[in-house]
Each structure stands twice: as C-alpha cells, then as structure tokens.
Design a protein around this nucleic acid. Structure first.
Length: 631
RNA sequence: GCCACCCUAGCUCAGCUGGUAGAGCAGCUCACUCGUAAUGAGCAGGUCGUCGGUUCGAAUCCGACGGGUGGCUCCA
C-alpha cells in the first residue's frame, strides 16, 4: 500500500481500511471516518484486495463534510420513518454545508415537529448502530424496495439502467439506496441540527407530487456547527429587506402590488448615484443613451417573437383603441427599431445603445423576494450592434468594462461562466454559434480571466458570458450577462451596408452589467450590511449640535457642507448628544459632525466616524475634505 | 403557480384551553440644554390582513381570498 506521504507498507490482502487505519495508529483509527483508495472514496469497511494508494479520511479532511452530511441525512430519514411509519423516502443528498431529505409523508411535517425528529435522531446516534454496505443487483434492489413500499427508490432504480450492481446502506432496521460512502456507525455523528422544512416537487418537476423537504446540517465539531449557525444569523442580519426598512430606502406595499418597489428618497439617491456613474462611464466608452416607452403594440412583440417564447413572463395585454399593447419585459425590440430608423452603413458600426430601461415581468408569486426578485425592475441594458470583424474587440471591451464597473463597488471576486449551444432547440447556424462562442472564450483568455463552461447552458438564441460576484459573506450573485442574439436581427431583418455595397446582417449582443438596479442595490445592501461606502451613502454626514446654543453655528456648518455638495443632515432636536450619536450610528451615517461650545469658540468641527469613534477636531475645510475623501 | 408556515399600533412582539386588546421602540407635547451609542414625564395611536361561517360571545375555532416567509437545480 502507498500512504499519502509516499511511503509503502505491506498488508495482508483482504484487510479492511479500518483495520489498516488501526495498524497505523490508535489516534488515526479513532478519527477515521472513511478512506480514499486509488483516489476513490470508500467506506472504512472496504476490503483491500490489491496494491493501491490509500488515504484515511478523518473528520478534518475536506472530503469528510459530505460524508458526515450524508450519513446525518440517513439518520434523519430513519428518525422520520420511526415517527411516521408510512413515510416514503425519496432523495437525500448533501449540499455544501447542509443536507436535505425529501420525504413523502402525510400529513406533511411542520417546523414544530423538528425537535421531535432531532430527539429521535439523538437516540439513533446514541445507539451507535453500525452502518453496513450491501451490494445487490439492480433487479434485486427493485424487488427489495418495492417490497418495502419505497416507490421513489424503485423509480430511481428503474432510471439507472446503466448500472447493474447497486449498493444499499443499512443501519439498524433502516435501509437506503445509496452510493456512499458513509460513516462506519451512527455514533460517529457529532454535531447536527435540523434547520427548516419546505415543499419540493419530486424531481423538481411541478407536475409531480410535492414532497416534504427537511433541511439540516452536521459538522465534525460543535464549534464548527455554531460557526455555521452564526453565519446564518449574520446573513439574516444583513437581509436587505430588513435594512431597507431600517434605513428607509424602499418598501413593497401590498396595495401597490407584489414585486413592485417603492423607492423612498434615501433609496432613490443611492440609485441615482449608481445610475449617474453608469451613464458617465457609458458615454466615455462610446455608448449612446436612448429612452424607450414602457409599452408597445402586440405587433412589435409578435415580430420579436416574445409573444411566442416569452409570453408566460409577460403581463396580459391592454386594449387601446383598436390595438393590443403589452408592457415591455425587455428593451431590445425598441432599440432595434431605433437602429432600423434609417439605413446603416458599416461605417456607423459598432452602434451601442444604452438604456436604464424599466421592464415588467410576470414572475410567479412564490418566487418574489425583496429587491432580488421583483416584477418591475430597471435593467442597465445595452445592445451592441456590430460587424463580424468587430466582434472580438467588442466582446473584449464588454468583459473589461463589466469587471471594471463592478470593481467600483468594491467587488473583487468573480465567477465567470461561458454558456454554449443547447443540444436541441436553438436558432442560428452552428457556424454562427461557433464563431460567437469562440469570440467569448478568446476575450476571456486574452484578458487572462479564469472561467468555467456551462455546456449547453446558452439561451436558444445565442451563447453568453455570465459574471457572478462574490459578496462579503462569500455568497455569489449573478449580475453581468453578455448574450449573443442570433434571433432578433433575423426577425427584424436588421442590416447594414457593407464595404462592398451589399446588405449584411449585423451581430447583436445584449448585455447588462449590474443586471437590475433593484437587485444590485439589494446585493450592495447585503454585502455592506448597510454600511455603504461614503460616496454611496444616502446621508454622508449629520451635524449634531450639543445644545441649542450651538444651533446657529451648526446651521452654518450644515449650509457650508450642503453648498459643497455633501449629502448632509442637521439634527437640531432637543436630545442628548449620546442619543443623537446613537441614532446616527443606527442610520449608518458615515460622518457625525459634533458641535459644542469649544467648536464654536475655535471655529472648528469635532468629527466622529461611524463605527470608529472620534477622529478629532478639524476646520470646516478639513472636515469637508475628510468626507470627500470618504475613507 | 405549488407545499408548509405566518399576518395584532409606524416597527419588533405579548395576548394560556373563545369572554370584544397590551409592552418596548418610533411619533406628538412638555420639561431638561446635556461632550461621543438610549434624559424624564405625559399624550395619542389598533373595526387584531379582508370577507364569510360556527358560537350567547371570535384576535383566538373553521373556510375562502389577499399579502408575506422558507423552499420547489445541484444525481440513489
């Protein structure tokens, strides 16, 4: 056997991984939960028959997490079956930090039932039942699970036609179809917690039965579990819906309608700052701003094809005189009409139309979520129309622009995906797809950007690059999308006159950098926990006189800052200074300008920085500069 | 849309098994004029999401509707 450090040992054939671990040391044996033989994860009970490399997996190994989660899922399923003997188990995989098990049980399990299930799980863990792997042929397994009434397992088995021998895992009287590996016994589970229940369709298909899904988590140590629970709490504290209310940024009112955002003054200012920067950078890069209506005739959406392939996401038509109109779910048809307003020459290209266009999409009520998923939102949209020769350069510029724009907001980590042609339904020629896809990849490679390929993940009308940003809690959010469109230029018969005088079809690229302004503000809120950088803060500074005697002076300071473009407030109320500061801290205002008797007599300002405390005393100009620098 | 759960004052929440509502914060008024995260007192504020049913009686039980939350992709 070859050990991870390269050394070799002799063992008898047929020894189990567990026995081998024991031979290597009692400490290792105790921590061991699985093994990796020839780079393949196996149970500790695995019998080693021939020469191979072996690594004993312990609680601390990265591979351990999945095994721990998976075994905990089995224990949970067992507990549920004990409490609800008629329950049928479906699937129960490990996720990154959690597991779930989908179970068909009547009546559905409620959140209140979780403690009872946890209690039962503890019994199973305490009993330390050995977990045993058994192999059987697929047909044996089908019979076995059919006997036990486990119809979902039978269905799964019927689907995996390419495997003849399957494995099942048994602990006590509980048996589950599973690839494994698993912990050697239930007692090896150390720290778990059930988190939530939810409905989930069998196989994720809404035509199928809704099962009860129970989420839980499990860790090698209580500390690791607590750390994870703390992370969940931290994420909860940053919930943009809560911060949005606390900081008076926006609201979604049921009388206005679900998924429709009311932007309050402070929220609107944030949007405006983002949008102004967006406009400035687009103008600098040769984009032309356009503005288009919120509704358009049915005819337009017929030409574009949206009434065919996108109708379920559109609000119903409204009648105006003798025509039907639809609220726009996208801006592209309008931009195309602008393009088509006259004959275009190759000399005009590339044309880049940019619009902060507000669109409306009918999203299922159940998927709406704060600012992240809404029914009315503003896309930071642009359409690039160019010749084939210009393609590579334009794509490269787009990627570069997108990333540099996102960096403005402090995002530095990106996950980038190229989605290629779907297997079945697609429009445009394979050759066009190949050219475009190659262009996308080439741009990323030239810019030295790592990316993953989502094979077949493109829309039917073209390949795309998606950029996801990583926030402060390492969660990733999709923002940028750069999509080719082979469909619309065709449908709208877009053309330009080429150098040789012939009419040619241009390439068209849709793209949004932030995705939607609503969603992006939501992401920024969760990323920053509401502590916006000074340049984005809706209120950058608040002037806080200590007593009424400083009111006039405070007002002068306030006006001074205001005239110089600082977003500043004045708190002249009869509160103690402690309370004024507390309020400003809670409102997450970056600078507090405190004015007492001393400041008035020396013509200065005492500056306090949010979360940091007092910075000292400064002149008005120095104070202004501090805010302007915004550190 | 579907499944589960939730909806009481502007916000966060109490209100046991049915006997017609309560706190803290915010708001308003008054007093206080205070040096870096909560000064005190008083006042006001709710047809308990809406509609219907059961009942002598409903915030509480039942139903429908509206709204919200979690979830519905990650292979046994």
């Amino acid at each position: 056997m070859t050990l991870p450090d390269g050394s070799k040992i002799e063992v008898e054939s047929g020894i189990t991984a567990s026995e081998l671990a024991k031979g290597l040391g009692e400490g290792l044996f105790k921590k061991a939960i699985a093994a990796k033989i020839n780079n393949q994860l196996v149970d500790l009970s695995f019998k080693i028959e021939k020469d191979s490399s072996i690594k004993i997996i312990t609680y601390n190994d990265p591979e351990a997490q999945e095994i721990i989660l998976h075994t905990t899922a089995h224990v949970m399923a067992q507990a549920v079956k004990r409490l609800y003997p008629d329950a049928k188990i479906a699937i129960g995989p490990a996720l990154e930090k959690r597991f779930y098990y989908d179970i068909d049980v009547e009546p559905p399990i409620k959140e209140d039932d979780l403690p009872r299930i946890e209690e039962e799980m503890r019994k199973i863990i305490k009993a330390d039942h050995p977990i045993e792997r058994v192999e059987m042929t697929r047909s044996e397994a089908i019979e076995f699970f059919a006997d036990r009434g486990e119809i979902y397992k039978v269905e799964i088995l019927n689907d995996i036609v390419d495997t003849e021998v399957v494995s099942i895992y048994r602990q006590d009287d509980f048996v589950d179809l599973c690839r494994g590996p698993h912990l050697p016994s239930t007692g090896k589970i150390r720290a778990f917690k059930l988190l939530s229940v939810a409905g989930a369709y069998w196989r994720g298909d809404s035509r199928n039965k809704m099962l009860t899904r129970i989420y839980g988590t499990s860790f090698p140590t209580r500390e690791a579990l607590n750390k994870y629970l703390k992370f969940l709490e931290e994420a909860k504290k940053r919930d943009h819906r809560v911060l949005g209310r606390q900081l008076e940024l926006f609201d979604i009112n049921e009388n206005v309608g679900p998924g429709l955002v009311l932007w309050f003054p402070k929220g609107t200012i944030i949007r405006k700052i983002i949008e102004d920067l967006w406009i400035k950078e687009h103008l600098e890069r040769g984009y032309q701003l356009v503005q288009t209506p919120h509704i358009g005739k049915a005819r337009l959406w017929e030409i574009s094809g949206h009434l065919g392939f996108y109708r379920e996401s559109m609000f119903d038509a409204m009648k105006v005189e003798n025509d039907e109109y639809y609220v726009k779910p996208m801006n592209c048809p309008f931009h195309i009409m602008i393009y088509k307003s006259k004959t275009r020459s190759y000399r005009d290209l590339p044309i880049k139309y940019a619009e902060l266009g507000t669109v409306y999409r009918y999203e299922l009520s159940g998927v709406l979520h704060g600012l992240m998923r809404v029914r009315g939102f503003t896309q930071d949209d642009a359409h690039i129309i160019c010749t084939p020769e210009q393609l590579d350069e334009e794509i490269e510029k787009l990627v570069e622009f997108s990333i540099s724009f996102l960096r403005n907001f402090g995002f530095e980590n990106f996950d980038i995906y190229v989605s290629t042609r779907p297997e079945e339904k697609f429009t445009g020629s394979i050759q066009m797809w190949d050219v475009a896809t190659y262009s996308l990849k080439k741009a990323l490679e030239k810019l030295n950007i790592d990316y993953s390929i989502d094979e077949g993940g493109g829309a039917f009308y073209g390949p795309k690059i998606d950029i996801k940003i990583r926030d402060a809690l390492e969660r990733s959010w999709q923002c940028t999308t750069i999509q080719f469109d082979f469909n619309l230029p065709e449908r709208f018969d877009m053309s330009y006159i080429a150098e040789d005088g012939t009419k040619k079809r241009p390439y068209m690229i849709h793209r949004a950098i932030l995705g939607s302004i609503e969603r992006f503000v939501g992401i920024l809120l969760e990323h920053s926990a509401g502590d916006f950088p000074v340049w984005l803060a809706p209120v950058q500074a608040v002037v806080l006189p200590i007593t009424d005697k400083q009111a006039d002076y405070a007002c002068e300071v306030f006006n001074y800052m205001k005239e110089r473009g600082i977003r500043v407030e004045l708190n002249n109320r009869s509160q103690t200074i402690g309370q004024k500061i507390r309020e400003a801290e809670l409102q997450k205002i970056p600078f507090m300008l405190i004015i007492g008797e001393k400041e008035v007599s020396t013509n200065r300002v005492s500056v306090r920085r949010r979360k940091k405390g007092s910075l000292g005393v400064f002149t008005w100009e120095e104070t202004f500069n501090l805010i302007k620098e915004g550190k």
